[in-house]
Nucleic acid binder design. Sequence first.
DNA 1: TAAATATTTAAACAAACGATTAAAATGTTT
DNA 2: AAACATTTTAATCGTTTGTTTAAATATTTA
Lengths: 208, 208
Amino acid sequence: MKKENTTIDPTTEEKIKNAARVIFTQKGYAAARTRDIAQEAGINIALLNYYFRSKEKLFEIIMLESMQGFIHSISGVLNDEQTSLQEKIQILVSNYIDMLTIQPNLPLFVLSELRSNPQELILKLNFKEKLIHSHFFIQLQQAILEGKIPPIHPLHFIMNIMGMIIFPFVGSPILKNIGDLDENTFNALMQQRKILLPKWIEAMMIVK
Amino acid sequence: MKKENTTIDPTTEEKIKNAARVIFTQKGYAAARTRDIAQEAGINIALLNYYFRSKEKLFEIIMLESMQGFIHSISGVLNDEQTSLQEKIQILVSNYIDMLTIQPNLPLFVLSELRSNPQELILKLNFKEKLIHSHFFIQLQQAILEGKIPPIHPLHFIMNIMGMIIFPFVGSPILKNIGDLDENTFNALMQQRKILLPKWIEAMMIVK
DNA sequence: TAAATATTTAAACAAACGATTAAAATGTTT
DNA sequence: AAACATTTTAATCGTTTGTTTAAATATTTA
């Protein structure tokens, strides 16, 4: 029988999942070895297959959970009917940057694997519907209708916001080199962006 | 003796390099099989090692050439002393978007491999020095000194510009799904961005 | 406690992989 | 045409990799 998940000691199953998350996000699916994961988890290789049947099944679980966690974390913000468009952007930027500061490898991992694995996972998560029917998206379209924002495809703004948030983390090796930044200075810049990005986005949105 | 590179038939060496470029950028280093490359090139597997000694050496050559080509293509723009900062951004955005429309897989490939392979390649290319001493960068710092642009770390602007250009291509599977876009509609949006991005960047740069 | 079930381990298997070999084929020079 | 060098091929080698097996240990059930 499976052990109950007390607060103290992680289950073998959880140890494997935690290790898999680390290794997969570090190296990607193809470069990650089951032996790496087993070692990181401190368990026998056979246990990986005992609990998850195969490397691929384990990967799918990790990937699905990662993306579900992400979607869940932002859907609350996107659907808060009490906040304005600007406030939503502000909170979104802040939460997102904090998340990526802790898990800087996550976006490159997701984006890479999504490319080779396209439709299946995206469809399963139903990300499109959740975003399009969100209060955020309705507010965005409303602002366009009211003429507060120029009549541009809303996707442009999504691209801009996500690009400016995510790219610094994806390109951090180059950016750190260019700017002679260590980890701490880089993170300080990211904290600055929590203030700057909403201003920039607002300025951008009223350009006609 | 090696055959001369006439315009007509590609050398075996070139066939391998072209195939390697395709496969590596599609799948990444770890997921790319030497057999895939050989098949794509229409040659025997042994020829790959005959010409390039190993998968790794072949990869390094492809990676180096890809990045050198990229740097060469933008360094002309960055160092044109006849153009203003705004004009440089305009041309940069336009060239970059055209390039990525043809090679949409390139950025994810480069960014992924740069993560696992950090310092060596970046240092070899001396990208940092070339950017920092470019006319573009000097103009950027000048504008800050003159108070035309708020005194923010120049890297912020680099991040924003690159993020807004590159991210749409990196995240295209998700974005196409969200916006219900086929290849052509997506590319049309990218063409729009050649006009819009410089305006947005300019608006952003005068925010204080 | 004893039987039954669940978990863990060491060892090994089969397939896939990068790489090598030796010989054949082709091209070039004498 | 003969001798030599280069290029290409088919076959195979040694490792690595994901997975499986069977036995050992721990836990639960009756």
